[in-house]
């Protein structure tokens, strides 16, 4: 199920980058990011609403490529 409160968007360029994917998986404490078998990014929809708005993912990727959206605003 997609998030009811939070959505995370990642630019295709970043999602295809195995290095950045690894970084995103590492920084997120609530497991919203996972790596697919080919090393590209998977967003775990079930975990989206666990997002603690820490911005660590935003800081981990090039500016503007990862966006955390509050769907209640």
């Amino acid at each position: 199920m997609p998030g009811m409160f939070i959505d995370v968007e990642v630019d295709a360029k970043v999602a295809a980058d195995a290095e950045l994917t690894k970084k995103l998986v590492e920084v997120c404490t609530v497991s919203i990011f996972a790596a697919k078998d080919d090393g590209t990014l998977d967003i775990v929809e079930d975990n989206l609403d666990e997002c603690v708005l820490c911005d660590l993912c935003i800081q981990a990727a090039p500016k503007g490529t990862v966006r955390v959206k509050k769907l209640y605003e």
């Binding site: 009811m4 409160f5 609403d49 603690v52």
Partner: peptide, 15 residues
Amino acid sequence: TRVDIVARGVIKGCI
């Protein structure tokens, strides 16, 4: 404890 996380949990639970 975070107010927003609890709010999300109870609302989602209701729905």
